[in-house]
Write a protein that binds this DNA or RNA. Structure first.
Length: 839
DNA sequence: GCGGATCAC
DNA sequence: TATGGTGATCCGC
């Protein structure tokens, strides 16, 4: 009966390698008792967990009510729709890729054990009394695992050794293993320090044709357990044998002879060798001066199993740490596979429908990345425990969950996951937060807030990022979490501007709590809607610096100074001396504020014009959407919508890419770049005019007025028409409509010069910074055009996205027999709009 | 655009 | 004594 009171959300999650067959009941009892705190005195944490549990139960009740309200006819409709969706998903099933998920075994713990042999046979965990990052396999037998507070770990396992984390060390090791990953897939996608997805498809294509010696590696004869005795005796070299010895090996005559021979020949040859007797290998390490250990030479085959084993063995040789891997046709399955034979093992699901079905059928849904304890419980209430249950209950799920969730579930039921391994290039937010002993004094709260803003500002600056939305996060001593955010008018990473916004948000919260006091245990500050600090502005500015200086227009240079160097601005002083006198919210709007940036382009679009379409591009036949799992979902692309020109095609590629990453798209400062286009070229009417159309389409931003105030003749003028207006378009300066154009506008040649290093013939794109040797002017023009156009595309997409959200919301509200509008529709809609932009 | 919630690591 | 930090996404409003 005590068991009934246990809180499911706090129960041990034994869904982890090395935690099978534990006495869950006993462990949960200990966790429960420890969390609850003393008799009659529940911990705040515990109370909050209870509250959340109740909320979840309420949600399940509501869910059940919804289920009960579904008529048989509706259910039948749901079944029909579900079957349709499944059919569509099956139609785009692609088993052609070979995806590998690699995961280091108990990574942090393993590193610590490697470096301190005393930990070898002890239960240990990395972390503190407050929280554990990971535990070794011995500790896992006691139920001690990551995300568990240390003091509970100690209750479960009194002999548990706690080791403080050493992230620098883990990062260094991570760098080593990533070096190996990159040799199998240069575009691998790291998920954390210790795991990554790799697409082995290309590697395997090459591997089949590879020479045997490229698959030959040195392996120490004594593994793992003997390392530490080795190192404690300082007897043998622990360096990377393959890096040190393989070059010698390959250079030796015997190997040269064998280079073109078969694996069989190589194996025969290897069998004739005496270990450690391969002339002319050195016997001593040139790095550490120690004797090389005894080793064998191992030849790996061309199969995927051998390739992954080779990679794992190489990781172990290099780091003395083991990794596990999963091989499958998509990331979702690969991820599950990597856990299957952990530690130090691998598992392969072949690209076979039946094999996938068999694997997935009885798999508990909790094994799927993206399904956590809440979703597990919500689905469990509908009788869904395994992946096949998802299929069985598809008619119901269709009605109960959103379209996105429903599709996600169906994909799971079919064993379908993303077949793309891509790095998420652009980060969407950056934050810093701290837990501390209670702070309730407003001044102390503000002080903490300021400290966090300082850190955040520095972090942003380190990555050359500026952002538009400032959020604070607060957690009360009762563990209640709140976030509050405010969007600024302009991009910034200025510490004081961030703090002003954050402070205002905090102030509101403090006041809202009154007459009670706001008692916090955590505070955080986040910046989102990020963009790059410098790309367009700096390159455009540098492009014209010469002209500006030579033309000696004071106005120009003033404009430049303000936007490039905020600290030199006199306005900055005003800010420093009297920041409190201004309502911070209004202060941001001041066009004189320092350190504000226009929205600008930050990405390198060199590939848009110059690279051949990437074979791995998801845009080729699929659109990739981020799913809630952090992995990517693919949606079929309508291939009939091919565009005709290279420009369109490449732009659309960009469009899909942006859509795929679901970036918060910004309307942007492309209008102040338009002039660059006019300036550089007036030949390419089509491209030029298309962008003009785009400019007017996006004319709903603050800069619109500047555009419209720009004499129309400027656009059409065949003469390169400079220009200060464009820089003055910056919110940092006043637009001076009266300003005269220079009598002698800067000649094209001089501008081009500024992009060109005459000594090397290197031409630099002023927008993306890409360099090319002797870049023909026509190509450069087209390239610059494309770089600039993307602002307009962004703008359209942004509004598209908003429209879509709104319509989706509306649809959901009146959802009786939901119209399952597949994301295909969404994509087409976007595409049509963007296409119309090119007309 | 905002805030809560969920999830991964 | 005592339950983290960072980033992302989705949903409902």
């Amino acid at each position: 009966m005590e068991k009934q009171n246990l809180i499911s959300r706090m129960e041990l999650n034994d869904n982890k390698a090395g935690m099978e067959g534990l006495d869950k009941e006993k462990i949960n009892q200990i966790i429960y008792e420890s969390s609850k705190g003393k008799l009659f005195m529940c911990s705040k944490f515990f109370e909050n967990e209870q509250k959340k549990e109740e909320q979840l139960n309420q949600r399940i009740k509501e869910q059940q009510a919804l289920v009960d309200s579904i008529s048989p006819a509706q259910l039948h409709h749901g079944l029909k729709e579900a079957n349709r969706v499944i059919k569509e998903l099956q139609d785009c099933l692609d088993l052609s890729r070979t995806i590998v998920h690699v995961d280091m075994d108990a990574f942090y713990a393993a590193v610590e054990m490697r470096d301190d042999p005393r930990l070898k046979n002890k239960p240990m965990a990395v972390g503190s009394m407050g929280m554990l990052s990971t535990s070794n396999y011995i500790a896992r037998r006691f139920g001690v695992r990551a995300a568990m507070p240390g003091f509970i770990g100690l209750k479960l396992c009194p002999n548990l050794v706690l080791v403080k984390p050493n992230f620098d060390k883990y990062t260094a090791v991570s760098k080593e293993i990533r070096g190996i990953f990159a040799q199998y897939d240069p575009h691998f996608s790291p998920m954390s320090l210790d795991e990554a997805y790799l697409d082995f498809t290309e590697h395997l294509n090459h591997r089949i044709l590879s020479k045997s010696f490229s698959r030959l590696f040195l392996i120490r004869k004594e593994q793992g357990n003997d390392y530490e005795t080795n190192s404690s005796k300082s007897a043998e070299c622990l360096c990377d044998l393959n890096a040190l010895l393989k070059p010698h090996l390959i250079a030796s005559e015997e190997f040269e002879v064998l280079c073109g021979n078969s694996d069989e020949d190589m194996l025969v040859y290897l069998s004739t060798l005496n270990e450690n007797n391969i002339y002319p290998l050195p016997g001593c390490c040139s790095v550490c001066n120690r004797k090389f250990p005894s080793y064998t030479l191992k030849l790996y085959g061309v199969s995927i199993e051998d390739a992954v084993l080779e990679m794992r063995n190489r990781i172990e040789q290099l780091t003395r740490l083991t990794a596990s891997a999963g091989i499958a046709p998509n990331t979702m399955l690969a991820k599950i596979c990597s856990d299957k034979n952990k530690p130090n093992g691998q598992f392969h699901i072949h690209p076979d429908r039946q094999e996938i079905d068999d694997f997935i059928r009885d798999l508990p849904i909790r094994k799927i990345s993206g399904i956590g304890k809440v979703t597990e419980k919500l689905l469990g209430a509908l009788g869904v425990k395994t992946c096949n249950d998802l299929y069985k209950q598809r008619a119901l799920l269709y009605h109960v969950f959103s379209q996105i969730s429903f599709q996600y579930f169906m994909r799971i039921a079919l064993g379908m996951g993303s077949i793309y391994v891509e790095r998420d290039e652009d980060r969407k937010s950056m934050s810093t937060e701290q837990t501390f002993g209670e702070i309730n004094e407003p001044n102390e709260l503000y002080s903490k807030c300021e400290e966090l803003c300082q850190i955040l500002a520095k972090d942003l600056d380190n990555e050359h990022l500026v952002g538009k939305t400032v959020s604070i996060k607060i957690k009360t001593v009762s563990f209640a979490v709140k976030t509050r955010s405010h969007s600024l008018q302009h991009f910034t990473n200025d510490e004081k501007l961030i703090f002003n916004a954050a402070k205002q948000l905090l102030k509101t919260e403090i006041e809202a709590t009154q007459p009670d006091i706001l008692r916090l245990r955590l505070m955080g500050v986040r910046m989102s809607r990020l963009t790059s600090q410098n790309c367009v502005q700096s390159s455009i500015q540098s492009m014209f610096k010469k002209n500006l200086k030579s033309e000696t227009s004071r106005n120009y240079t003033n404009a430049m100074n303000i936007s490039t160097d905020a600290t030199s601005s006199t306005n900055n002083n005003q800010f420093k001396t009297e920041p409190e006198q201004l309502d911070p919210i209004f202060y941001y709007n001041s066009s004189n504020s320092p350190n504000l940036y226009r929205e600008s382009d930050e990405e390198d679009y060199s590939h848009v014009c110059d690279s051949p379409p990437s074979k791995r591009s998801p845009l080729k036949d699929k659109v990739v959407l981020k799913s809630s799992t952090g992995t990517k979902k693919k949606i079929p692309k309508d291939n009939n919508k091919q565009t005709k020109t290279v420009e369109k095609d490449t732009i659309l590629r960009f469009v899909y890419k942006k859509e795929s990453t679901n970036t918060l798209l910004e309307n942007s400062g492309h209008n102040n770049l338009k002039y660059v286009d006019v300036f550089i070229t007036n030949e390419n009417e089509e491209v030029g005019s298309s962008r003009s159309t785009g400019s007017s389409k996006s004319a709903e931003t603050t800069s619109t007025s500047v555009i419209s105030s720009f004499p129309s003749t400027h656009n059409k003028s065949s003469r390169p028409s400079f220009t200060s207006e464009h820089f003055n378009d910056s919110p940092l300066t006043c637009v001076n409509h009266e300003m005269k154009l220079p009598k002698d506008p800067p000649a094209i040649s001089s501008s081009i010069e500024s992009m060109t290093d005459p000594s090397f013939g290197m031409v630099t794109c002023p927008v993306c910074g890409q360099q090319k040797l002797n870049w023909p002017l026509e190509q450069l023009n087209i390239h610059v055009d494309l770089c600039l156009s993307k602002n307009t595309v962004k703008d359209i997409l942004h509004r598209d996205e908003q429209t879509l959200r709104r319509s989706k919301a509306l649809k959901r509200d009146g959802k009786e027999l939901p119209d399952l509008s597949l994301p295909c529709k969404k994509r087409i809609k976007t595409q049509m709009t963007v296409e119309s932009y090119f007309k």
